[in-house]
């Protein structure tokens, strides 16, 4: 840095941009993983990419937030409407309404988090000099959870915060309903973890994005049909608990409204899919091979 003599502050600064050795202190590994998570969240959203790559993810985000924003906006903008946002649409209803958007978002964003890295063969760079396979798997799983939380938890929180804002006595409303917040987070987590595990497991099995997306859609679209046919054939409701599309939403609804829910079998299915999905993901990348 060069300064003019006799002055306190530099008038001009010269930066030497020639290559030099890096002698700084390296950050802890958690910093590297959080950087990887942030980057993995940005990419499916098209951030720091062309305008075209932002269109579809932001359309889906808009579709996910629109119902919550609408029911919050109406009481805010039209004082004559005496209803609370949660009276216009309940948390379980909002979750159910957003189910289709969620499936579309998962299909386009989650499996490709893995297939893209294998398609570009970037894993050899990561595993050789940047990340361990554990850091890669944990970072990718966290990124998927954060991404899906944007679609599932975000609208629920908008509804919650909007209800505070539109309440006649916001402080009193918050005091009365603060207990809803952990239930909202837990319910969203149930849905998010299920679809993150399923999407990543499917994505870990192939390097072709089209197969990964198709595989995920096959599970969530064909699964309900099969379970309903089974229920008809067996003349029993228990096969409905195997439905990969409505199962997690029904569990989340049970958490939100305290109802009995779809039963023990649905919890077992949820546990198997989440544990199996993340287990498969870890197994696929264990050993740090880039193959």
């Amino acid at each position: 840095m060069a300064e003019r003599e006799g002055t306190d502050s530099p008038r001009a600064v010269l930066h030497d941009i020639r290559y030099s050795r890096y002698d700084g202190v390296l950050r802890p590994r958690s910093s590297a993983v959080s950087g990887f998570v942030a980057s993995s969240v940005r990419r499916p959203l098209g951030l720091r990419r062309s305008a075209g790559s932002k269109v579809w993810p932001f359309l889906l985000l808009a579709a996910a937030y629109l119902p919550a924003l609408a029911v919050v906006a109406v009481p805010l903008l039209v004082p004559q409407v005496p209803l609370q946002p949660t009276e216009l649409i309940s948390y379980p209803n909002l979750l159910t309404t957003n189910s289709v958007v969620l499936l579309a978002f998962v299909a386009t964003a989650v499996p490709s988090m893995l297939t893209r890295d294998r398609r570009d063969r970037v894993l050899s760079l990561y595993f050789a000099t940047a990340l361990s396979w554990v850091e890669y798997v944990v970072g990718t799983a966290l990124a998927a959870v954060v991404l899906l939380a944007l679609v599932v938890l975000g609208p629920l929180l908008v509804l919650f915060v909007g209800s505070i804002a539109t309440a006649d006595d916001p402080g009193g409303w918050l005091g009365d309903n603060l207990g809803d917040l952990p239930r909202i987070v837990l319910a969203a987590l149930l849905v998010v973890l299920f679809h993150a595990a399923l999407g990543l497991a499917v994505g870990s099995l192939t390097s072709k994005r089209v197969f990964a997306v198709g595989g995920y859609l096959a599970v969530v679209l064909v699964g309900p049909v099969i379970t309903r046919v089974l229920a008809l054939v067996l003349a029993s409701d228990w096969p409905l608990a195997l439905d990969p599309t409505t199962g997690p939403v029904l569990l989340a609804t049970a958490v939100l409204d305290g109802s009995g829910g779809p039963g023990t079998l649905a919890w077992v299915v949820w546990s198997v899919v989440v544990a199996g999905g993340f287990g498969l993901l870890a197994r696929r990348y264990s050993g740090g091979s880039d193959a």
Partner: peptide
């Protein structure tokens, strides 16, 4: 630019570095 920044961060450098 993004490739190099990302890999530098994954190897433990802070964002500014």
């Amino acid at each position: 630019q993004d490739v190099c920044v990302q890999l530098a961060r994954l190897r433990g450098l802070g964002r500014r570095d």
